[in-house]
Design a protein around this nucleic acid. Sequence first.
DNA 1: TTGTATGCGTTATCAG
DNA 2: CTGATAACGCATACAA
Lengths: 330, 330
Amino acid sequence: MSRKVTRTDVALKAGVSKWTVARAFVPGSSISDKARADVLAAADELGYRPNLLARSLATKTTNLVAVLVDDFANPYKLRAIEALTKALSAEGLSALLVPIDDQTDHADAVLHADQRQVDAIVLLGTAFRNSTLEASRKPGSPPMFVLARESTVDGIPYVSCDAKTAMHDIVTHLVAQGYQKPAFMSGPKTLSTALGRQKYFRQSWAKHGVKEIPEIEVGSYDARLAAEALRASLRTRFKQGSFDVLVCENDVLAMGAMDVIRHEFRLKVPKDIAVVGFDGMDMAALASFGLTTYEQPIDAMARRLVEMLLEEEPARANKLVGQLRVRSSS
Amino acid sequence: MSRKVTRTDVALKAGVSKWTVARAFVPGSSISDKARADVLAAADELGYRPNLLARSLATKTTNLVAVLVDDFANPYKLRAIEALTKALSAEGLSALLVPIDDQTDHADAVLHADQRQVDAIVLLGTAFRNSTLEASRKPGSPPMFVLARESTVDGIPYVSCDAKTAMHDIVTHLVAQGYQKPAFMSGPKTLSTALGRQKYFRQSWAKHGVKEIPEIEVGSYDARLAAEALRASLRTRFKQGSFDVLVCENDVLAMGAMDVIRHEFRLKVPKDIAVVGFDGMDMAALASFGLTTYEQPIDAMARRLVEMLLEEEPARANKLVGQLRVRSSS
DNA sequence: TTGTATGCGTTATCAG
DNA sequence: CTGATAACGCATACAA
């Protein structure tokens, strides 16, 4: 494999200096038409491609964004990754995908991204603790952004789906359908709050006079765990008919819940228990689920986040409204 | 935001030259204990982190691997991304996730990755045409690898799930269960062949005297399209009972198929028609599907691929065997 | 054990 | 409009 062709090679072939070569690639640069043509021809012939590494070193900007992802168990994360990476590349930015395992890895990941001189770090997901966010407070470290949850740390901007509107829409729909005894299935408490869904769910029901809403907490956003949690609840805490609709913090939980309701307890959805999810996963639309869900405007959210990345003084918070998709489960 | 602290700053504070600072960070280097301690202390105090960009420029190796992904519609891709990125980071490599839209983007993506001086390019997915693979033939361009499909281009190594063993296991299971009239649901023909699944499926059945296997081709690996295709087939080409088991090229297709079989045609799975998938998606295990599927050893595959990345003379092909997960759908 | 010079491929700035 | 010089932060080879 021959060594990479560099600017000097092109200069040599075109019979100009290497600085002239550089100019040929900068649009508004002052260079004679002939020189530019010569350079471009030579570059093309040699297959010259500018080395972005060297450019980054000189300009101190990499056009690289680290995307930290933890919860790979939720298929919806793929949609989010797609939306974000495409929004980034639309602006000429590239995504460094950094997988996270447990708590200890977080600091390392941020550090490593920092060393790679990324222009920004995006936290994609729900299971990030504040300690991770605090890392961006260190002077000199790249700015941090949070997508699809609310950051509870001051000064760290985020883009999320407007949970207040969402829950208002969901509850309005449920009330119209005649449901009166809601229950809520949440993820782990520490992370769940960053989504704000349960809070607004309760607020919305309160307006309709419903104050008591039982909660089923699930250890992580996982269908199997959701199934287990609901199974246990249905066997012990709840009697038949103690709630007529179960709203879940996301679609994965909802699917796990439906599985138990229908296949273990032989109950009908929505007749015995209605189920509502959140996110808008493709799978939720299958007849096997027919899951009513609140669709996050994930593409718009990703684009908004990228806009913020590019802004000098990004707004602290952005909440975009999604859309309720009513299906057979309610 | 203060400027980044560099080697020179540390050298100044520690009272040594900046080259001594460098040595302090290289394990086997010859340096006095005192000097090292001084440097490390100064570095720690200043919060010094080596600039990987500059290092890469000097060493001509970035420890960066571009991961090209196209088909975001298949949730299984998330598992693959997880497996690959974790396998990479276990070896100190980082993943540049490059999303691909249509045919024209491919060359650009390869080019861009090249300009970022990535050490390798990994194609993750099934919908890559040979023209993409050919791009790696250009001298000087980073080596290419294919994960989870077979490359049909010479000299491009790949790691895939052994389709021959897989189909043998599936067919053996089906024969034991008494199924006699199989049908096969494939993705788009041009991509489908790179998986080799249909081919070995037919071969395996041939050993049991079954030569005629109807095929249902789906335009892309998408549950909704699978549903449409099966619906059309069931209405026109096939009479009730013309096949007793439908084996699908992957789980997404299988789920779409089950949806139609059960919810539109009101047939029982597996009594009327059994269904088998491929991949081993988490969702397939839900009671709503209970899908029998062949689980790809995706983690092992990813690790093997990373090994190959690191080898001087990588083997051309690697096929790893997975495991059949029998559930209620067969 | 330590300091020095040179190069990696680019950009920015300045002279001509 | 063009050529030259310095700098980006680090690594490598070499000299002290």
